[in-house]
């Protein structure tokens, strides 16, 4: 089917441990999950992490700041950092979510297709390649990150503030992948 746009399927996530039950949760867990009488639907992922509400609340705030803070690095490129980390760590659920967000924000399904079909060694335009290479090394073997990789990002017009944002978006997925991929698994969902 020529001309068909590459699509990444939506997945659902199921935990390997029993998540917190909203009806028996502690006050602190309910507050962490932001459960209110009008909002009792909480995802299995949130209910799984709510076993430790203290770390869940702090990490969620940091995560949201890194992925959604105004200004700085383009949101699409933060999603690309997230996608590259998720590809390195083979977190198929995170990869699926952030591949789709990247396409929504950038319209560049060809980049996602390349990553899914040929991997992070595939061929990309030069700036995308610079971002992919840097985030791949940072995710895989942080001790092997080089200043040349960062200089290449600068050469493609990224400011130092942009690069600070990129570092954080890849790094926070080094965190998120280590939760999502180790604590549960992804399953296909029906998409109509």
């Amino acid at each position: 089917m020529s001309g068909a746009r590459f699509k990444v399927k939506a997945l659902s996530w199921s935990p390997y441990i029993e998540p917190v039950d909203v009806t028996t949760a502690t006050e602190e867990q309910l507050a962490a999950m932001q459960v209110t009488p009008s909002n009792t639907k909480v995802s299995p992922y949130v209910r799984t992490l709510a076993h430790d509400p203290e770390s869940y609340v702090a990490r969620t705030k940091l995560f949201n700041a890194i992925m959604y803070a105004k200004g700085g690095l383009d949101r699409a490129e933060r999603e690309l950092g997230a996608l590259v980390a998720s590809a390195v760590n083979r977190c198929v659920y995170c990869a699926s979510v952030h591949a789709r967000r990247y396409v929504e924000l950038s319209g560049r399904d060809e980049v996602v297709e390349e990553i899914y079909v040929r991997g992070l060694e595939g061929s990309f335009d030069e700036k995308t390649k610079a971002i992919v290479d840097f985030c791949k090394t940072l995710s895989q073997t942080p001790s092997q990150v080089t200043k040349e990789q960062v200089q290449t990002l600068r050469d493609h017009g990224m400011s130092k503030a942009d690069i600070v944002d990129l570092i954080h978006s890849a790094a926070i997925f080094g965190w998120a992948n280590r939760l999502m991929h180790t604590l549960g698994h992804a399953e296909p969902v029906d998409t109509k």
Partner: peptide
């Protein structure tokens, strides 16, 4: 710790 190490390495290179 995996997050922190990556932030430090990235910022140091920057």
């Amino acid at each position: 710790v995996n997050f922190e190490a990556r932030v430090i390495v990235g910022l140091a290179a920057l």
